[in-house]
Each structure stands twice: as C-alpha cells, then as structure tokens.
C-alpha cells in the first residue's frame, strides 16, 4: 500500500482543527483579503504573528509550513526581481544601462514578495488543518444557497468526495499495471521525454478502461442504495457552529480593525 497524502492535510487536534470548516473557509478568504488590504509592513507583521500562532498552536511548525512555498519559489523570485529592477521611485541606488535599482523599487519588491508569501501561508493554514472530507462538506454547505439558482452544489461535492475516495484505489491500480507491463518488457525509465511519454500509453489505456468500468459499477451500487441526487437528502454529520467559531470570527475582526487603523494612520 502506497502512502498517499491527499491534499496537504496534517492530522492533529487543536482549536484550529475543531473549527467548523465553513468558518475556516470564510475566514481564510477574509484573511486573504486582509493581506491585500495591508499597506504597511506593520500590517504584514500582524498577519505573520497570526500565522505563527497557527503554526505553533497546531504543532505543524513554521518549518513545515514554509515547505509549501517551494513550488512558488520561482514566481516569488520573479516578482521580486521585476519590481526590484523595473520600478523607478525615489533615490537611485545603482544603475546598469536601462536597469536601475531605486529605494522605492527595493521597498515594493520586498513588499510584494512578503505579500505573496503571506498569501500562501494563510491559505495553507486552511488546507493543513482541514481534512479533505470536512472541506468538501463545508463547501457543499456554503454553496447550498446557490443551488436555488441552479448551481450544482451537491453534485460538485459528491464528485469531489468520490474523487477523494478513488485516488488511493487508482494509485494502487496504476502501480499494479505498471508492474504487469514491466513484467512484459515495458520500459518506463529510459529514453528521452517523448519516448517516455509514449511508454505511458500501455499504462494509461488499461487504467482508463478500468476507471470507466469502476465508474459504471459504482453508479449501479449508488443507485441500488437509493441515490437520486441531492434532493431530500439528509446528512448523518451535521455541521454546527460553536463558541470557538465566534471567537475565531472575533479575532479576525480585531485584525481588520487594527489593519484599518494602521492604514488610516499611515504607518510604514
């Protein structure tokens, strides 16, 4: 059995974990907006303090969270460089031909990089502390009002949870087919990119065929268990708001108040 981590969920149990997924979804959006509102480094420091609290109250640790920045490193570096070299504002610090570094450029470059990093960290707080299942539940529940105007809220969350259910199954199957094809002389490791891509065909074809067969059987099994879409359906696990959801909303509201004050006072 392969060790598959779906999403980035980091199992644990603390205040953040016990928050209602709906609260977490909404507050994460609020937090992202807050990152955009901030016009000062003090504002960023405030948000960073919050991220630090999240990292340490959950035992996830800042180091683990920073790992999530890796895939975005190039984008962050590029934004930084573009702002640094192309922005012309304030005193000139250095100049090579058309390229010049200004004090305003340095400030903007750092500012934008910090903003991007904070965006990633804030959204990570959500994905690290919320299991994919409760995330889907939360999204379904939040999208439910939209189903009145024909938005397929239930269908989307059903699709997401079935996808989550079948990821490990299909991974296992891929591995089985890969071994079977290797036993028949298939070579997945050598050759250039195109040759390797072509070598995937004998892997993908059986995998697709089997996925369709599975889908067919699953649909049959769901129908046999009285599935007929989202109408009239109940849920065993009801989402309920607790006092801690109120506390979390209060904390974010306080951060908003502080941020607006910082902006009004024009602090750096």
């Amino acid at each position: 059995m392969m060790n598959v981590t779906i999403g980035q969920f980091f199992p644990g149990d603390s205040f953040l974990y016990r928050l209602d997924p709906r609260t977490k979804l909404i507050l994460t959006v609020a937090l992202i907006v807050l990152v955009f509102i901030s016009r000062s480094f003090i504002g960023f420091a405030l948000i960073f303090l919050f991220v630090l609290w999240c990292a340490f109250s959950t035992k996830i640790g800042l180091k683990y969270m920073l790992r999530g920045l890796k895939p975005l490193f190039v984008i962050i570096a590029l934004t930084f460089a573009l702002n640094l070299f192309l922005m012309r504002d304030g005193e000139t610090l250095a100049r090579w031909g058309v390229i010049q570094i200004t004090t305003g450029g340095v400030r903007t470059a750092v500012f934008m990089a910090v903003r991007l990093i904070l965006l990633v960290l804030c959204s990570q707080v959500l994905t690290l502390t919320t299991s994919p299942i409760s995330l889907t539940d939360g999204m379904e529940s939040l999208m439910r009002p939209l189903s009145k105007i024909g938005f397929p809220a239930h269908e989307i969350s059903m699709m997401m949870s079935i996808a989550l259910r079948f990821i490990p199954t299909l991974m296992e199957e891929t591995e089985k087919i890969r071994r079977a094809q290797m036993a028949r002389g298939a070579d997945f490791e050598s050759g250039n990119l195109i040759q390797r891509a072509r070598a995937m065909v004998p892997l993908l074809v059986p995998l697709f065929v089997s996925a369709f067969r599975r889908a067919d059987e699953l649909a049959m099994a769901m129908e046999a268990r009285c599935y007929h879409g989202g109408a009239g359906r109940t849920k065993m696990k009801q989402l309920r708001f607790h006092w801690r959801d109120g506390a979390a909303v209060g904390a974010i509201a306080a951060m908003y108040a502080l941020m607006i004050a910082f902006n009004a006072l024009g602090v750096a």
Partner: peptide, 29 residues
C-alpha cells in the same frame, strides 16, 4: 451487495459510507 468490494464504497470514511443509503432516503441525522 455486489462483487467488487472497491466499486461499491462511496465515501472516504467507513461510517459515512454506511450512512450513505440512509442519507439518500432522508432519514433524520
């Protein structure tokens, strides 16, 4: 109950799967 054990389980948690049919029928939580 069908033949393939994998292809008839809908949910990612055992008890949620067990509840699937009852949820479809709108039984109270």
């Amino acid at each position: 109950v069908f033949q393939n054990p994998d292809n008839q389980i809908v949910a990612t948690v055992v008890e949620e799967d067990c509840a699937f049919g009852l949820e479809n029928r709108g039984v109270p939580p």
